[in-house]
Nucleic acid binder design. Sequence first.
DNA 1: ATTGGCAGTCCCGAGAGCAGAGTGCTAAGC
DNA 2: GCTTAGCACTCTGCTCTCGGGACTGCCAAT
Lengths: 340, 340
Amino acid sequence: MVSERSLAVLRVIVQDYVASREPVGSKTIVERHSFGVSAATIRNDMAQLEEEELIAAPHTSSGRVPTDKGYRVFVDQLTDLRPLSSGQRQAIETFLGQAADLDDVLARTVRLLSQLTNQVALAQYPSFGSSRVRHVELVALAPARLMTVLITDTGRVDQRLLDGEHGLDDAGLGELRTVFNAELGGLALADAAEHLHGIAASVAPARSVIADEIARSLGEQVAANRQDRLVMAGAANLARTESDFSGSIFPVLEAIEEQVTLLKLFGEMEIDEDGVSVSIGRENEGFGLGETSVLASDYTASGGSVARLGVLGPTRMDYSNNMVAVRAVARYLTRLLGED
Amino acid sequence: MVSERSLAVLRVIVQDYVASREPVGSKTIVERHSFGVSAATIRNDMAQLEEEELIAAPHTSSGRVPTDKGYRVFVDQLTDLRPLSSGQRQAIETFLGQAADLDDVLARTVRLLSQLTNQVALAQYPSFGSSRVRHVELVALAPARLMTVLITDTGRVDQRLLDGEHGLDDAGLGELRTVFNAELGGLALADAAEHLHGIAASVAPARSVIADEIARSLGEQVAANRQDRLVMAGAANLARTESDFSGSIFPVLEAIEEQVTLLKLFGEMEIDEDGVSVSIGRENEGFGLGETSVLASDYTASGGSVARLGVLGPTRMDYSNNMVAVRAVARYLTRLLGED
DNA sequence: ATTGGCAGTCCCGAGAGCAGAGTGCTAAGC
DNA sequence: GCTTAGCACTCTGCTCTCGGGACTGCCAAT
């Protein structure tokens, strides 16, 4: 059992350590914070915290450093997140407000978020599992090259090339376009994938082969859209905080280049009602990110599909500030994308 | 004036230094390479090279290290680049061969290239200045949201959202779609930009306002397409070779996150007839990349537009191997994209 | 429960000493 | 005139030692 004051001590240890990057000792604590007790008392509390494995001493006789578990308790204790400064709030509005399309919005979002937090910022494209087919377009780029374009109601456009003689004139193309749009228009992507198989049967026999080809291509596009993408910015920030990693930052950089890994990590995090979820240190071990923490929040894109954004950085980070930033950006993004 | 043998000495100094990461001395050279002369003679040659500022000694009495100028001479001397091993060649084919669309091709290209070279790989999207409008699509996503889609003959699709009541039904949309396609179809992007202004006049008056809006949106898309994009992979490799940078790799990572900078750097490099251009060390100073070298080569996309790809890494890199890889990948990419 | 005092432990930086590597120079040889 | 052997010199990098500094843990007193 840890006393109330011990938790306060943990709090200042985390804060001071994050700020100074140096193990913090009992004497420093009484000097910098008015606890109204002596250093010896703080030492007793620290012994208690160490017993609970919330802090640890790098060496016999150095100050204490929070453990992963300590950060976890600290974060869970964090209740009232201060709102952003009005300047920061304004920065979000002006920076994101002038975005043109979805790609641009997300690109700006991660840049903004990485600047607000000084960490690596990540944003997941809205999931298309729940979005619907708005339109299918077929374009003959050449006699032997056909392009299929899939447009969803979440504002995403995806194109794919189909090589090989298609033998279609404008009329043929028109028929196929009409058929595919009639069959698929308005369907959720998940349903569209199933409907695709039967379509070739409903066109003129001469075109059933190419229709099959097109159906296959669209099937791939649907699949690709359900498998989410990620944008990232601020990887350089990892180099700035390099000393926070035991070895090189190479494995970390390597891990964050692997989008699949990050998406999985993002996906496994559970967002609580407060809006920001935190995964700390060894909790991310399985992803090769055992020395980093990840903050994530959900945002809602038009069409109601939910996606995630967040930041990633060394375990020793300013959780409070970063949680505020992530939450604020997620909320603003929801507002920006939802207004239709 | 440097003797022929001195140049040979420079060559082995570069090679050994790149391989070992350690300053190389006269003794090491005579041991590892059969020059048929003694260490003292090599020392004389080295004095000559130092005179010409092709090599330098980090400290009085350590081996020599190539200077930027030394690397330059070394690279310029490189004539016969060995072809890739058949294994590598095959890797290119199998890895790139299964790509689906342009995005996918370039994503795979940079991943491949970064693996072949162990450096950061870059690829520029084909320039669209010379490409043509294939098709314009208008999609009403909602009563107050319209999407304009621009498809070029280079296989690129670009969409943009237009907010605000457009008041168009299917017929109106159809008219506009027809008009825009009739006016713009087949035009080079540069010409299309100019034609856009007059279009609003040729539609029913009730729709001229929205037509103007659409024209403006398409204008932005054309402009965005002429401003090139870049894909990148293998940034983690910088961390692996971290010791090759005097300070932190932070500024380097920061510089390569700034696409505009890289595009400018890419653009200023002149590709010689050999197919691969090299920019070394301080030659890149102005871009914040004074300790890195950049190799670049051109590839041709369908439609004849030319773009660049290459690698970036510490000055101390295996130029020979990397030049071969860049050239091979560029050639293969040209072949892959050009076959239509 | 808190506090002051004190011994003990460990880190860290400075300084000394030493082996190793490599150079430049000079004088001799081909 | 180029090449070579030899030698003195320089500088790095490593190890070792040593002392200061910063904590802690414990104990006895309040």
